[in-house]
Amino acid sequence: MSTSAGRATDEGDDALRLLSLVERTLTGRLEEALRGCGSSLDQWRILSLLAERGGCPMNVVADHVLLLAPKLSKLVDRMVSANLVLRRRDHEDRRRVLIVVSPRGRQALAEWDAATADVRGQFREVLGADAEHFDALLRRLQQGLTPARVGELEAPVQA
């Protein structure tokens, strides 16, 4: 292996390591801030999604918060018991159940957003004018690493 090829691999590995360290640091700080309010990072992410998009089916919530269905179901059950979210039938597809944020959930989300404001502010402060560019790079990386759906890979059938 040439020296330049080895160096490129090391730089890529270093970038992945740094990305993991940043994610762990930010996650830890957010969890600490939320723990003080009696919340978890997953609960905050769920309420943030629901407040932004309205009612969502469980699979959309699971994809957003990166949880498997069994763990998400238990968490949503606890959130229903705490009156943070409600289950509602989808008006368009009566077989489907949507999760919606409750009025109590909106109040909790406002508290949790305030609790995490310092961490989010530090993130933006460190990045400064590069925050939007960083967001665009992360989105491009995510899209590039997400496998295409099977239907997108297959060519249309000619009749």
Rank of each mutant, 00 (worst) to 15 (best):
E32C: 09
L137C: 15
T9P: 00
T27P: 05
L66N: 04
S48Q: 14
D42S: 13
P70C: 07
V126W: 14
D63W: 05
L49G: 12
Q122Y: 08
D42G: 04
M58V: 01
D77K: 13
D118E: 12
V80W: 05
V119Q: 10
L153Y: 02
G38T: 04
Q158K: 13
F123M: 13
S102G: 05
R139A: 15
S2V: 03
L109W: 07
L49F: 09
D13F: 07
G128Y: 07
V126N: 09
R95L: 06
H91N: 01
D90S: 11
G128E: 06
L153F: 03
E152T: 00
G128A: 12
R106E: 12
A62E: 09
A62Q: 06
L47G: 13
Q122A: 12
W112N: 10
G28C: 08
V80H: 08
S4D: 04
L153I: 07
H133Q: 14
H64K: 07
A108L: 11
L66K: 11
A110Q: 12
A82P: 02
L98D: 01
R88Q: 11
L68C: 03
E132M: 09
D90N: 14
L145C: 14
E92G: 04
E111R: 15
E132R: 13
V157G: 05
R120P: 03
A51F: 08
E154L: 15
E125P: 05
V65T: 04
A33K: 05
L16D: 06
V80F: 09
L98H: 02
D14P: 00
A114T: 02
A117L: 14
L138E: 06
R149Q: 14
E52K: 15
R17C: 04
V76E: 01
K74D: 07
E152G: 14
A131N: 09
R140L: 15
A129F: 03
F123R: 10
S81D: 11
G55L: 04
R35I: 02
S102Q: 08
